[in-house]
Design a protein around this nucleic acid. Sequence first.
DNA 1: TTCATTTCCGACTAAATACGTAGGAATTGA
DNA 2: TCAATTCCTACGTATTTAGTCGGAAATGAA
Lengths: 147, 147
Amino acid sequence: MRVSTRGEYGVRAMFDLALHFGDGPIALKTVAERQVVSEHYLEQLMAALRKAGLVKSKRGAQGGYELANSPANVSIGEIIRVLEGPITPLDCLDADVETGTGPYCRAPERCVLRNLWKELQDSMTQVLDNTTLEDLRQDAYRLEVAE
Amino acid sequence: MRVSTRGEYGVRAMFDLALHFGDGPIALKTVAERQVVSEHYLEQLMAALRKAGLVKSKRGAQGGYELANSPANVSIGEIIRVLEGPITPLDCLDADVETGTGPYCRAPERCVLRNLWKELQDSMTQVLDNTTLEDLRQDAYRLEVAE
DNA sequence: TTCATTTCCGACTAAATACGTAGGAATTGA
DNA sequence: TCAATTCCTACGTATTTAGTCGGAAATGAA
């Protein structure tokens, strides 16, 4: 029931970029130092975020990363999905019955426990999809910890 | 962000015992067959649930397991905690600052992201702690799938 | 008593996942 | 030209997950 370091560090990095949104590209080295995570490891996460279109990159000297969209338009849920896959307590919840994706839930309408896990999933996505980087940025200013 | 098979199978087994609550001990073999999981594996889960006081066991012929308390008094959250540990997206949320448990969150009041993860945790426990085995039992009768 | 049934217990293991590291090629601005 | 920086592939290792295996101990029934 945990978020992995991919998700945790990824959100931290995106939050960092949100604090500096509009300042042009930020070098990964800078983000890694501020957030105290391995630069090489962050690199992998940024590659995924870039391919998903959440960040833009610029190579070479004075290069770096920046958000592709304004912080208000990036939810934490998007970030987590890119880095960890679907937000679901059980794979079978997302399996497509029509296409037969996955060997699960051939009779979801008869699965009593499905409702339970579905409720859990909904409550998680409710929080993650309705919180944006802008929300976090404002929290940071309230807490006076913006860097 | 997934529940492991320990949690999933454990809830299934407890649900099964709830459906037969009051019928005396149920052999694990029976539960394993009905829920289609390995009996040996379930055995390990039941050991944990027994030590936590959620089920009672009776050894020998005609022996088996039964709920220690009525289904209405057993929440899914309890079951999950016994089998998977604390329900939290990040270990640092549960680390005790006073005793210094865990090397995390030495300044939680300054951690912007903490609020986010805390909200996520709350939304999860909200669902899991407020659903009981009795709720599931009633769902089963509504769906007419009680065995 | 004997025996089949059933829980109880500890060890073992194979596969997957998590969490990175290493090394270097390609690009870019100064 | 060169230092800074992204980009890419591969590798490695520790932990967790998801079980299996074999037998000891207890118990009710015949």
